[in-house]
Amino acid sequence: MATRQDNTPDLYAVLGVDKKATPDEIKKAYRKLAREYHPDRNPGDTAAEERFKQVSAAHDILSDAEKRKEYDRARSFGGLGGAFSTGGAGFDFGDSGIGDILGSVFGGRGGSGQPRTRRPNVQRGRDLEAEVTLSFRQAMDGAQIPLSVRTTTTCTTCSGTGAKPGTSPTVCPRCQGRGVESQGQGLFSISQPCGRCHGSGTVIEDPCPTCGGEGAVHATKRYRVNVPPGVKEGSRVRLAGKGQAGRNGGPPGDLFVITHVRPSEVFERKGDDVEVTVPLSIAEAVRGADIEVPTLDGRKKLRVPPGTKHGTLQRLRGEGPPRLGGGGRGDIRYRFVIEVPEPSSDEQREAVDQLAGLFPAASRERLFKES
């Protein structure tokens, strides 16, 4: 068997290919060696059978892009070591299954000299989403909102293992802890999740009476969510670790709270700013005026310059909604809308006629330049 000085099996040498070999070159080399050492062609030859297992294991890893990347990365860190694990100079493959393959086929041992056992399949809990509705004022100022969430929590009877107290999950006897099993067809085989342990690599012979082997129980969690100032419609507030419980001691997921903001009768949200529609009379727009306008904290005086046109915007910078993440505040934009009344008396109509005589008519020549 080809190995490096650090006892790492050289899978490229096992297949007789270069470490830069293409997937087609790896497949071709595997097929050639699999035919040569297949047990059907070498009945009773234990050496050929062992060689066939090594060739199959090398192909299983090098033909999978992700597994090959992990294997190459482990070799670049000084090898997997004799333990094929985190012990000593070893490398942790997580749940990739590579360490199991190498350990079972190439005879890997732990630092104590005992066969390597598979850790339970630790899984992070699922993230959850919930929705809350706030008033516009609560969204601007921040608020503490009560929230009930239906979720799962770690079973206290078994501490999340799923096994009855005093027992523990055991290595799956069907897949030997790999989590996958193969069905052979001639020279080739198809790998699929183990039908006994469903890919976890462990089985629970004596389930916990409280959770039935799930490691978690259903519960309704009640929180008071601190919604920060400045949230918008659809903002997501993350509550770390408040999602579903993990399996086999895995960490819980997160809870994401989606905010819905009831509209204001005065302020309209425009990105990081808010906008207020401010009506002006014709006289105020023509001669200018000092008017009072609302702010998020009260009211202020605003100067309307003479000759203000319909739709003109003015800003109060830095007095808008707080920006999430501590980025200061947005602006308040005031959009002036000129209200045009309909004359209702002879006196008003006469005043309009006098006004028309004092000001020139609107120029519409530019409307016909392209005609």
Rank of each mutant, 00 (worst) to 15 (best):
E268T: 10
I145R: 10
E284H: 05
S363T: 08
I190H: 13
D45V: 12
P251E: 15
Y37W: 11
Q183L: 08
F136P: 12
V337D: 14
N248H: 12
P193H: 08
T220C: 13
H198V: 03
Q176T: 12
L302Q: 12
A356V: 11
P23G: 00
V203E: 12
P229S: 15
G78D: 13
H38R: 01
Q176R: 14
V55I: 09
D100R: 15
G357F: 06
H218W: 14
R124E: 13
G250F: 14
T86S: 13
A74S: 13
V274S: 05
D353L: 15
N121Y: 15
Q185K: 14
Q123G: 02
T156Y: 00
V304Y: 06
G330H: 04
C211D: 01
L128G: 01
E284W: 01
N42H: 08
S200V: 06
T308W: 05
A130C: 11
T295K: 00
Q192S: 14
T154L: 08
R315M: 09
L302Y: 06
G212T: 05
P294N: 01
S189Q: 13
K309D: 02
E233G: 02
T157E: 13
G186Y: 11
P343D: 10
C155D: 11
G298L: 11
T117P: 03
P228C: 14
Q123L: 09
E205A: 15
L128E: 05
L62W: 10
G79T: 13
V227G: 09
E292A: 10
D24S: 08
R31T: 07
V231C: 12
L187F: 15
Y334V: 04
G327I: 02
D272V: 07
E292V: 13
V340K: 07
K270A: 04
C158N: 07
L80E: 10
A89V: 09
P294F: 04
V17I: 04
T308H: 01
E268L: 05
P43T: 03
R126P: 01
E25S: 06
R247C: 09
A57G: 07
C158I: 03
D18G: 07
V171Q: 14
T22G: 09
T210D: 15
F359M: 14
G330L: 07
R224F: 13
